[in-house]
């Protein structure tokens, strides 16, 4: 397959951005007063989106030679998942930007801020829906490519969406903990949801590989290269154990402890380890899915 590391980064960053924004809306509504957490999550989300889009455009060599051609993206075919993605990314980007401006200047008396405050709820809804769309689109984009059986299945977009939410939530906690550790601590309900996402992600990954492995030769070759071939160490070590199992176990233990003692002071180092591993695992998922894809053998020999 022809897509390489830049598209891998783009798929990862776009998903992370969507997850981090949704995390910011969640915390804003569930834990009022954690304004800095919300602000940092929104900065992370918009930065990730911007860097991802720069990588996407840098990978499109034709657009570098002729930037005007990018405008054709807006009235391209409606059959192309990429053109849906462009629309979703534009909506998500605009909403994320408005919400970031709001978070930045919330405390100031300003006409613009008053207007945003009035439409905050609908903006949040549009933002969350478009971000869910972005998360799913990164999977759909490659999911419709019939040539690669590892991609061409219905589980992949769901897996990418779940992983996008998971790595976004992890990134919002990780970066908030660097700057405002007291606001990143004790978000137990977010952590519980995060644990559910990690478990669902493990199941989806297992189901996807199991089903692709029961399909045609190219699919089997892809799965084999992951579980017992070229990518074994990355797959088991960084994605499954490091990116999913270890964070899930640590979070489960933490949540168990806090159920016994609601005033438990969470360990900041553990937070960095868990969330850092989840972010790394999120990247590794995209990397492995892109790299391990083997095209169909159309020749029959």
């Amino acid at each position: 397959m022809v897509w390489g590391i830049m598209i891998t980064w783009y798929l990862f960053l776009a998903g992370l951005s969507a997850g981090a924004f949704i995390s910011s809306v969640y915390v804003d509504n569930k834990y009022p007063g954690r304004d800095k957490f919300v602000l940092i999550s929104r900065i992370v989300a918009l930065l990730a989106l911007a860097v991802g889009l720069i990588l996407l455009i840098a990978d499109a060599e034709g657009a570098l030679h002729n930037p005007l051609s990018l405008f054709f993206l807006l009235h391209g075919t409606r059959t192309s998942v990429m053109s849906w993605g462009v629309i979703l990314l534009i909506i998500a980007g605009i909403v994320q930007f408005i919400m970031l401006v709001y978070s930045l200047f919330k405390s100031k008396q300003n006409k613009l801020i008053d207007i945003i405050a009035k439409i905050k709820k609908p903006l949040e809804i549009v933002g969350v829906i478009s971000c869910l769309g972005v998360g799913a689109y990164t999977g759909l984009l490659i999911g419709v490519v019939k040539t690669a059986p590892l991609w061409n299945n219905a589980i992949l977009p769901t897996l990418f969406l779940v992983s996008a939410l998971s790595s976004g939530i992890a990134a919002s906690q990780f970066f908030s903990a660097i700057f405002v550790s007291n606001e990143a601590k004790g978000l137990w309900s977010l952590k519980k949801d995060h644990l559910v996402l990690l478990i669902v992600e493990m199941l989806l990954l297992f189901f996807m590989l199991f089903i692709v492995n029961s399909g045609n030769a190219a699919g089997v070759e892809s799965v084999q290269s992951l579980v017992s071939g070229k990518y074994t160490i990355l797959f088991w070590g960084i994605l499954v154990i490091g990116g999913l199992l270890v964070p899930a176990i640590i979070e489960a233990i933490e949540i168990r402890h806090v159920n016994h003692d609601p005033h438990l002071n969470p360990n900041l180092i553990l937070l960095f380890v868990v969330e850092g591993l989840v972010i790394l695992g999120g990247f590794m998922l995209r990397y492995l899915v892109i790299e391990a894809a083997v095209p169909l053998n159309f020749l029959g020999f």
């Binding site: 022809v2 499109a60 657009a63």
Partner: peptide, 28 residues
């Protein structure tokens, strides 16, 4: 070629691996 942004999505989608990137223009 005027409309092509060189995203390589078509190269991924072509089951026959029939497309080439033309490096002089960045298009397919």
């Amino acid at each position: 070629h005027f409309k092509c942004i060189g995203c390589k999505y078509c190269m991924e989608a072509c089951p026959y691996d029939a497309r080439e990137i033309h490096h002089a223009t960045g298009t397919i």
